[in-house]
Amino acid sequence: MTIQVLAVDDSRTMRDMVRLALTSEGIQTHLAEDGVHGLEVLDEISPPDAIITDINMPRMDGFGFIDAVRTREEFRSIPILVLTTESASEMKARAREAGATGWIVKPFDPAKLVKALRMVAG
């Protein structure tokens, strides 16, 4: 079963790693460089089954991005995993408040990222 995921991260390395981790599991992966770009991509593709996003990004950070995604009716139920080096609990709380589904701390284990995705997106 094909899952389609949008991954938003300003680090090319991270985007590459996420793409590698996901595509090798047959997960179709779209990439975006920051929140603004992420929203643009969302409008170009059919709604993904899950979104993975970084927090600290230029132009629009992860909180803003999640918030923006959640205000859109058609994206309200898309699971959003936050993938970031931040692990402070107040950051988690903020992400949760914005509407994040789950939280994964970098560096991540590709297998576990996939597992987490399957857990939230089926």
């Binding site: 079963m1 899952i3 969302l42 409008d43 059919s46 058609e74 994206f75 139920s77 089926g122």
Partner: peptide, 19 residues
């Protein structure tokens, strides 16, 4: 649409509508 969408129950979260 990929399978998991189909799998989604028609419950609380409504299925995403393409923009």
């Amino acid at each position: 649409r990929p399978d998991p969408q189909d799998l989604e129950p028609a419950s609380a979260p409504p299925p995403p509508i393409p923009s």
